[in-house]
Every structure is written in structure tokens, then in C-alpha cells.
Simulated assay, not measured.
Amino acid sequence: MENSVIIVGSGLAGYAAAREIRKLNTALPIVMLSADHGGFYSKPMLSNALSSGKDPESILNGDAVKMGSQLKMSIRPFCRVTLIDQERHELTLTDGERLVYGQLVLALGADQVRLPLSGNGIAEILTVNDLDDYKKFRDVLTGRTRVCIIGAGLIGCEFANDLVTNGYRVDVIDMSAQPLGRLLPRVGGAFMQKRLEAAGVFFHLNTTARSVDQTQQGRFRLTLDNGELIESDIVLSAVGLKPRTQLAAAAGIQVNRGIVVNRLLRTHRADIYALGDCAEIEGKVLPFVMPITHAARALAATVTGNPTQIHYPAMPVIVKTPSCPTVVSPPDFSVKGEWNVETVEDGVKALYQDDAGNILGYALLGTAIKEKNNLTAQLPVVLK
């Protein structure tokens, strides 16, 4: 075990790291510790699984046994780490067992943010952060007709589109004046809202939920800050993610918004790395698939003996809202610029540009998504 790589986490980041390491070294011992079943699946599939005809069982690509055999590594499901002793290169598990690592990769993911709500129904509010959560959501969805989603960000809008397309009444609440408030300029947000409303989504914007109460009939009554009341069979919270940093912080590893790593994805502690939703690289936390893919390749090279710095190209995000096809390349808003928006036929083209006219980011909606490849080629890299 002293020469092994131990990966804590079996999500997309953990498996991406394991796959890339195995491509470069077929003999290096790899151990994956998973807090859940340890199987591999694509988390982004969860928000449009209904429309894709996928049930929870079919989303799983392989269980821990299959994946361990495929990648020639040991996967330990239902295994949690309680302590990292970076001086001894040792992990302590919940049952007291201790494991020695050569190199440690933290792929801990992120937790769903919970709003401070009141009411007797808050314990029944659902979140979907993994496959087990999604199984519970689908079980509860059976026989129900109304779903209320708190949060009109990327995940909230994707779930809203998926649900309304499959016949559910969907209400979406957000304190922003528009859906995807952090990603789209005002005109783009209005276009998204109009398209999703045409599909059947009901938006409640510029307000937030104050309380969630369960009625005697088993339904939920949400009271909003503006005094509006909404009744629903299910309440789904999708207000954002918070990187899991507690384990690292307790070990004396530097954390900020995420676990702080350098361009080698290394923490300031020797032989401890982090990637994925839990990691912060040069002030950036990038909870999307493409950053994980690039990070896993660089990390694999480093832990197999070829120190390789991470480089992020422009990485557009495809929003899974078929009622309003959308592609976004979020700009770095710390760089001075402004949105220049053009309404095209049945679409919106928004370019975030500096004073010299250089494109720093974009948002393309509707028919404008056809310009994705051309505009992406003009974007600056995220990390050189």
C-alpha cells in the first residue's frame, strides 16, 4: 500500500482519474474508496433521464465489481474516510481501519446547498446529487403530478424541462429576475424563460421560498417571500453546490471555496491531490465535465512520474433544455467587459467582449447555437 494511489470518491472525477492513471501505468496499485455503492454512471444524465427513457437501473454503467475488474483496481464501497494523517501518509476509516497511501487523490465532489427554510415539510425536500438520490426521486415521483423546484440555475432548468416534457406540472422559484441568472445576460434569460414557459413551466422569480409545510393530504404548501402560495406533490431543491472540503480542512490542508491546489492539482501537502467539484485551482471552481476530463489527464501524468500542469482551453457548457437549446461559455467576470446581445431569428447571440472587441465568453440560445464552433475558436483559454 505504501506505493499505491488511493482515490477517495467514486464520482465522475474519481473514475476519470483512475482511467487516465491506468492508461499510463498498468501495474500501479489503485484503491478507490467510495461512500456509496461505488458503481460508475454519468451524473449529468440524471437531469434528463426521463426524456432519455432511462430508469435509475439503466443509468448505472457498471457496479463496483465490474469496474474494479475493468480498471484492475480495488474498489471499496460504503467506505468513508474520517481522518487524513498527512505526516504518516495514513487514512482512518469509520470502522477504525487504517490505510497507508503513497499518493492520495481527493475526488470528494460537492454537496447540495440547503436554504434555511421553515415549516414542517422541510425534512421531505428532495435533492438529486447522486444516483441514490435520483432513485428516491423517481420512486416519489410515481403517481404524482406536480413538482416544485427551488432554483432556476442550470440543474433546476434541466430538471424542469425534463419533467414538463413528460407531463408534470412544474413550478420553479428563484430569487433572480431570470432563469440561469449567473450564466445568461438579461435578454438571454428572458428568451430561456419564454421558451420554457411555452413548454409548460411556471416561473416565480424575484422571490424565494420562506417556508414549506406538509398538508394533511400529504401535499406541500410553499409560502414565498412575496406572499404567494404554491401547492405541490414534491419539492426539489436545486440551488447550487458547495465543495466538500471538511475532510481536507480537518487534516490541515488549505481550503477556500474548494480544496486549494496548484497547477499540478497538488495541495500544499506532499502527495495529496484534488480534482473535480471539490477542488479550487487558481481561484476557480469548475463543476463541469470538461474541466474534470482535462484535470484527470494532467493528474494521471503527474502521479505516474511525469509532473504535468493543468491547462484549461475554452470549455463551453451545453445546457440540456431541448425546449430552449443553449450553449454557454461563461466569461471570467473579473476581466472588464460587457455583454453585446443580438436577437437573431428564433434565437439570441450574446458575446461578452472587452473594450478591444475580443470575445471573452458567450451565450447562444435557440438557432444561435449553430455558431458554437466558430465562436469557441475565438475564445481565450481558461488557464494557459
Rank of each mutant, 00 (worst) to 15 (best):
V113T: 06
A110F: 03
L141T: 12
R144C: 12
Y134V: 03
I122G: 10
K135R: 15
G143A: 10
P116C: 13
I122V: 14
S118L: 14
P116V: 15
D133N: 05
G119V: 07
Y134W: 14
R138D: 07
L126T: 02
L131T: 01
S118Q: 09
E124L: 03
L131Q: 02
N120C: 04
D139I: 00
F137V: 00
G119A: 15
V140Y: 01
L131W: 12
T145I: 13
T142E: 11
T127W: 04
V113A: 15
T127Y: 04
K135S: 05
L131R: 07
I125K: 01
A123P: 09
Y134M: 06
T145N: 13
L117H: 03
V113Q: 13
G119W: 10
N120T: 08
K136C: 01
L108A: 06
R144I: 08
L117G: 09
L126V: 06
A123C: 00
T127N: 12
T127E: 01
Y134I: 11
G143H: 07
I125M: 05
F137L: 02
A107G: 12
A123N: 14
L117C: 11
I122R: 14
L126G: 04
R138H: 09
L131F: 08
L108F: 04
L131A: 08
I122N: 11
T127M: 01
N129Y: 05
K136W: 06
Y134F: 15
R144V: 14
V140M: 02
L141M: 15
N129P: 08
D111S: 14
G109Y: 00
D139L: 14
D132A: 08
I122T: 14
P116N: 11
R144K: 13
N129Q: 10
D132C: 03
L115C: 05
F137P: 02
T127K: 07
I125A: 07
L108V: 01
L115K: 15
R144F: 05
K135Y: 07
S118E: 13
L141S: 09
T145Q: 15
T145F: 08
N129L: 00
I122Q: 02
G121W: 02
D133I: 01
F137K: 00
K135N: 03
V113E: 10
E124S: 11
K135V: 10
D139N: 13
G119P: 13
N120K: 04
A107Y: 05
R144P: 10
A110M: 07
D133M: 01
T142V: 12
F137S: 01
I125P: 02
A123S: 15
G119L: 15
T145G: 03
V140L: 14
Q112P: 09
D132P: 03
V128Y: 07
K136S: 05
N129A: 07
T127A: 00
K135H: 08
E124D: 15
A110C: 11
A123E: 15
G121D: 11
R114D: 04
I125V: 14
V140Q: 11
T142N: 15
V140S: 12
G109T: 04
D130G: 05
I122L: 03
L131I: 12
T145L: 12
V113W: 04
G109S: 08
E124A: 08
T142Y: 12
R144G: 03
D130R: 06
D133K: 03
S118G: 10
Y134P: 05
G109I: 01
D130E: 06
P116E: 11
T142M: 10
F137C: 00
A107C: 10
D130A: 05
E124P: 04
F137I: 00
R144Y: 10
